[in-house]
Protein backbone atom coordinates (compact mmCIF):
# COMPACT_ATOMS: atom_id res chain seq x y z
CA UNK A 1 0.00 0.00 0.00
CA UNK A 2 2.05 2.94 -1.20
CA UNK A 3 -0.90 5.23 -1.81
CA UNK A 4 -1.59 5.88 1.87
CA UNK A 5 -2.32 9.55 2.11
CA UNK A 6 -5.20 10.00 4.50
CA UNK A 7 -5.67 8.75 8.06
CA UNK A 8 -8.97 7.33 6.84
CA UNK A 9 -7.03 4.89 4.65
CA UNK A 10 -5.75 3.49 7.96
CA UNK A 11 -8.82 3.94 10.15
CA UNK A 12 -11.32 2.48 7.74
CA UNK A 13 -13.12 1.47 5.69
CA UNK A 14 -16.28 1.25 7.73
CA UNK A 15 -17.51 -2.07 6.47
CA UNK A 16 -19.50 -5.22 7.05
CA UNK A 17 -17.08 -7.88 8.30
CA UNK A 18 -15.28 -10.14 8.38
CA UNK A 19 -12.54 -9.36 5.86
CA UNK A 20 -11.42 -6.23 4.05
CA UNK A 21 -10.15 -8.30 1.12
CA UNK A 22 -12.78 -11.07 1.00
CA UNK A 23 -15.82 -8.95 1.95
CA UNK A 24 -15.28 -5.19 1.45
CA UNK A 25 -13.05 -5.69 -1.62
CA UNK A 26 -15.51 -8.22 -3.04
CA UNK A 27 -18.35 -5.71 -2.71
CA UNK A 28 -16.26 -3.09 -4.51
CA UNK A 29 -15.55 -5.53 -7.36
CA UNK A 30 -19.30 -6.13 -7.60
CA UNK A 31 -19.83 -2.39 -7.81
CA UNK A 32 -17.43 -2.10 -10.75
CA UNK A 33 -19.24 -4.98 -12.47
CA UNK A 34 -22.52 -3.11 -11.99
CA UNK A 35 -21.08 0.05 -13.56
CA UNK A 36 -19.63 -2.00 -16.42
CA UNK A 37 -23.19 -3.11 -17.18
CA UNK A 38 -24.40 0.48 -16.94
CA UNK A 39 -26.40 -0.53 -13.83
CA UNK A 40 -28.60 -2.78 -15.97
CA UNK A 41 -28.29 -6.26 -14.43
CA UNK A 42 -30.82 -9.06 -14.86
CA UNK A 43 -28.50 -11.89 -13.97
CA UNK A 44 -24.90 -12.81 -13.25
CA UNK A 45 -22.64 -15.78 -13.30
CA UNK A 46 -19.62 -15.36 -11.06
CA UNK A 47 -16.54 -17.55 -11.24
CA UNK A 48 -14.41 -17.72 -8.10
CA UNK A 49 -10.70 -18.46 -8.16
CA UNK A 50 -8.21 -19.43 -5.43
CA UNK A 51 -8.94 -18.25 -1.92
CA UNK A 52 -12.17 -16.64 -3.17
CA UNK A 53 -13.31 -20.13 -4.21
CA UNK A 54 -12.04 -21.94 -1.11
CA UNK A 55 -13.15 -19.57 1.66
CA UNK A 56 -16.11 -17.71 0.09
CA UNK A 57 -18.75 -18.96 2.54
CA UNK A 58 -16.68 -18.24 5.66
CA UNK A 59 -16.07 -14.69 4.48
CA UNK A 60 -19.47 -13.79 3.06
CA UNK A 61 -17.68 -13.26 -0.26
CA UNK A 62 -20.64 -14.36 -2.40
CA UNK A 63 -23.01 -12.05 -0.51
CA UNK A 64 -20.56 -9.18 -0.84
CA UNK A 65 -20.02 -9.67 -4.60
CA UNK A 66 -23.77 -9.73 -5.17
CA UNK A 67 -24.32 -6.75 -2.83
CA UNK A 68 -21.95 -4.75 -5.03
CA UNK A 69 -23.74 -5.88 -8.17
CA UNK A 70 -27.01 -4.70 -6.58
CA UNK A 71 -25.44 -1.29 -5.91
CA UNK A 72 -24.78 -1.61 -2.18
CA UNK A 73 -21.79 -0.10 -0.41
CA UNK A 74 -19.44 -2.33 1.67
CA UNK A 75 -20.89 -0.80 4.85
CA UNK A 76 -24.53 -1.51 3.93
CA UNK A 77 -26.22 -3.65 6.61
CA UNK A 78 -28.26 -5.33 3.87
CA UNK A 79 -25.05 -6.82 2.45
CA UNK A 80 -25.59 -10.04 4.38
CA UNK A 81 -29.02 -10.43 2.79
CA UNK A 82 -27.80 -9.72 -0.74
CA UNK A 83 -28.44 -13.22 -2.08
CA UNK A 84 -32.06 -13.13 -0.86
CA UNK A 85 -32.55 -9.58 -2.14
CA UNK A 86 -31.27 -10.60 -5.58
CA UNK A 87 -33.72 -13.50 -5.62
CA UNK A 88 -36.62 -11.23 -4.61
CA UNK A 89 -35.69 -8.82 -7.39
CA UNK A 90 -35.67 -11.67 -9.89
CA UNK A 91 -31.96 -11.38 -10.55
CA UNK A 92 -30.60 -14.81 -11.31
CA UNK A 93 -27.18 -15.38 -9.74
CA UNK A 94 -24.98 -18.45 -9.98
CA UNK A 95 -21.46 -19.27 -8.84
CA UNK A 96 -18.83 -21.64 -10.12
CA UNK A 97 -15.31 -22.45 -9.01
CA UNK A 98 -12.62 -21.82 -11.59
CA UNK A 99 -8.83 -22.03 -11.80
CA UNK A 100 -7.27 -19.10 -13.66
CA UNK A 101 -3.59 -19.58 -14.56
CA UNK A 102 -1.34 -17.20 -12.64
CA UNK A 103 -4.18 -15.22 -11.12
CA UNK A 104 -4.01 -13.63 -7.65
CA UNK A 105 -5.78 -15.84 -5.06
CA UNK A 106 -8.60 -13.34 -4.52
CA UNK A 107 -9.90 -13.18 -8.07
CA UNK A 108 -13.45 -13.25 -9.45
CA UNK A 109 -14.63 -13.36 -13.05
CA UNK A 110 -18.05 -11.94 -13.84
CA UNK A 111 -20.53 -12.52 -16.62
CA UNK A 112 -23.21 -9.88 -16.19
CA UNK A 113 -26.43 -10.35 -18.17
CA UNK A 114 -28.20 -7.19 -19.25
CA UNK A 115 -31.90 -6.79 -20.05
CA UNK A 116 -31.26 -6.59 -23.80
CA UNK A 117 -29.49 -9.95 -23.83
CA UNK A 118 -26.04 -8.40 -23.91
CA UNK A 119 -23.31 -9.96 -21.72
CA UNK A 120 -20.56 -7.94 -20.01
CA UNK A 121 -17.46 -9.87 -18.96
CA UNK A 122 -14.80 -8.76 -16.53
CA UNK A 123 -12.15 -10.16 -14.21
CA UNK A 124 -11.07 -8.45 -11.02
CA UNK A 125 -8.91 -9.02 -7.97
CA UNK A 126 -9.14 -7.89 -4.37
CA UNK A 127 -5.54 -7.02 -3.62
CA UNK A 128 -5.80 -6.32 0.12
CA UNK A 129 -7.22 -3.82 2.59
CA UNK A 130 -10.31 -3.45 0.41
CA UNK A 131 -8.36 -2.17 -2.61
CA UNK A 132 -9.29 -3.79 -5.92
CA UNK A 133 -8.14 -3.93 -9.52
CA UNK A 134 -10.05 -5.02 -12.61
CA UNK A 135 -7.61 -6.58 -15.07
CA UNK A 136 -9.82 -7.62 -17.95
CA UNK A 137 -13.01 -6.25 -19.42
CA UNK A 138 -14.83 -7.61 -22.45
CA UNK A 139 -11.68 -9.23 -23.78
CA UNK A 140 -9.38 -6.24 -23.30
CA UNK A 141 -6.58 -6.04 -20.74
CA UNK A 142 -7.36 -3.12 -18.46
CA UNK A 143 -6.19 -1.81 -15.11
CA UNK A 144 -9.09 -0.23 -13.29
CA UNK A 145 -8.80 0.51 -9.57
CA UNK A 146 -12.00 2.49 -9.25
CA UNK A 147 -10.07 5.35 -7.67
CA UNK A 148 -11.03 7.63 -10.55
CA UNK A 149 -13.84 8.10 -13.00
CA UNK A 150 -12.87 5.78 -15.85
CA UNK A 151 -14.22 5.73 -19.38
CA UNK A 152 -13.61 2.65 -21.52
CA UNK A 153 -14.34 2.83 -25.20
CA UNK A 154 -14.59 0.12 -27.79
CA UNK A 155 -14.14 1.52 -31.27
CA UNK A 156 -13.07 0.71 -34.82
CA UNK A 157 -9.33 1.19 -35.02
CA UNK A 158 -9.42 4.18 -37.43
CA UNK A 159 -7.30 7.29 -37.61
CA UNK A 160 -8.55 10.32 -35.70
CA UNK A 161 -10.98 8.77 -33.27
CA UNK A 162 -8.68 9.14 -30.29
CA UNK A 163 -8.08 12.82 -30.90
CA UNK A 164 -11.80 13.43 -31.44
CA UNK A 165 -12.59 11.93 -28.02
CA UNK A 166 -9.79 13.71 -26.17
CA UNK A 167 -10.68 17.03 -27.83
CA UNK A 168 -14.30 16.67 -26.75
CA UNK A 169 -13.16 16.05 -23.18
CA UNK A 170 -10.74 19.01 -23.24
CA UNK A 171 -13.36 21.34 -24.72
CA UNK A 172 -15.60 20.46 -21.82
CA UNK A 173 -12.95 21.18 -19.28
CA UNK A 174 -12.31 17.56 -18.31
CA UNK A 175 -8.70 16.85 -17.40
CA UNK A 176 -7.38 13.41 -18.37
CA UNK A 177 -5.28 11.93 -15.57
CA UNK A 178 -4.24 8.76 -17.32
CA UNK A 179 -4.92 7.19 -20.70
CA UNK A 180 -4.05 3.92 -22.43
CA UNK A 181 -4.94 2.55 -25.83
CA UNK A 182 -5.23 -1.17 -26.56
CA UNK A 183 -5.85 -2.74 -29.94
CA UNK A 184 -6.73 -6.08 -31.39
CA UNK A 185 -5.03 -6.34 -34.80
CA UNK A 186 -7.16 -9.23 -36.01
CA UNK A 187 -10.53 -7.62 -35.42
CA UNK A 188 -9.39 -4.02 -36.03
CA UNK A 189 -11.13 -3.08 -32.83
CA UNK A 190 -9.40 -0.93 -30.25
CA UNK A 191 -10.10 0.32 -26.77
CA UNK A 192 -9.25 3.48 -24.87
CA UNK A 193 -9.12 3.53 -21.09
CA UNK A 194 -9.36 7.11 -19.89
CA UNK A 195 -9.15 8.14 -16.24
CA UNK A 196 -10.26 11.67 -15.50
CA UNK A 197 -10.07 14.00 -12.50
CA UNK A 198 -13.78 14.81 -12.66
CA UNK A 199 -16.92 13.00 -13.71
CA UNK A 200 -17.78 13.33 -17.39
CA UNK A 201 -21.32 14.61 -17.92
CA UNK A 202 -23.97 12.38 -19.44
CA UNK A 203 -24.30 14.73 -22.43
CA UNK A 204 -20.64 14.38 -23.36
CA UNK A 205 -20.70 10.62 -22.88
CA UNK A 206 -23.72 10.45 -25.18
CA UNK A 207 -21.91 12.53 -27.83
CA UNK A 208 -18.90 10.22 -27.62
CA UNK A 209 -21.20 7.20 -27.93
CA UNK A 210 -22.65 8.67 -31.16
CA UNK A 211 -19.28 9.09 -32.89
CA UNK A 212 -19.21 7.13 -36.16
CA UNK A 213 -16.50 4.65 -35.28
CA UNK A 214 -17.66 4.12 -31.70
CA UNK A 215 -19.03 0.69 -30.79
CA UNK A 216 -19.52 1.03 -27.06
CA UNK A 217 -18.66 3.25 -24.10
CA UNK A 218 -18.50 2.01 -20.52
CA UNK A 219 -18.28 4.38 -17.55
CA UNK A 220 -16.89 3.24 -14.19
CA UNK A 221 -17.65 5.62 -11.35
CA UNK A 222 -15.17 6.09 -8.49
CA UNK A 223 -15.94 3.30 -6.03
CA UNK A 224 -14.40 4.69 -2.85
CA UNK A 225 -17.17 5.35 -0.38
CA UNK A 226 -17.46 8.89 0.90
Amino acid sequence: MDKINSIFDVLGPIMIGPSSSHTAGAARLGKIARYAANRDVVGAKIYLHGSFAETADGHGTKKALVAGILGMEPHDERLKLALDIAKDEGIDISFEKIAIDGAHPNTARFEIYKSGGEIVRLTGTSIGGGAVIVTEMNGFDVEITGDYYTMITKHNDKKGIISRVTTMLAENNVNIGNMRVKRNHKSNIASMIIETDDLVSATIVEKIRRLDEMIAVIEIMPIREK
Binding site: V10, L11, G12, P13, I14, M15, I16, G17, P18, S19, S20, T23, A24, G60, K63, H75, E77, L79, K80, G129, G130
Partner: peptide, 21 residues
Protein backbone atom coordinates in the same frame (compact mmCIF):
# COMPACT_ATOMS: atom_id res chain seq x y z
CA UNK B 1 -17.22 -11.93 17.08
CA UNK B 2 -19.24 -9.10 15.60
CA UNK B 3 -16.87 -8.82 12.64
CA UNK B 4 -16.99 -12.58 12.05
CA UNK B 5 -20.79 -12.48 11.97
CA UNK B 6 -20.93 -9.80 9.29
CA UNK B 7 -21.48 -6.95 11.71
CA UNK B 8 -20.57 -3.39 10.78
CA UNK B 9 -17.07 -2.51 11.99
CA UNK B 10 -14.31 -0.04 11.23
CA UNK B 11 -11.11 -1.62 9.93
CA UNK B 12 -8.44 -0.43 12.39
CA UNK B 13 -6.15 -0.88 10.60
CA UNK B 14 -7.74 -4.11 9.23
CA UNK B 15 -10.97 -6.01 9.81
CA UNK B 16 -9.07 -8.91 11.38
CA UNK B 17 -7.53 -6.62 14.01
CA UNK B 18 -10.58 -4.39 14.44
CA UNK B 19 -10.97 -5.06 18.19
CA UNK B 20 -7.71 -3.72 19.56
CA UNK B 21 -8.02 0.05 19.13
Amino acid sequence: EYNASMGRICAAPTAGSCGII
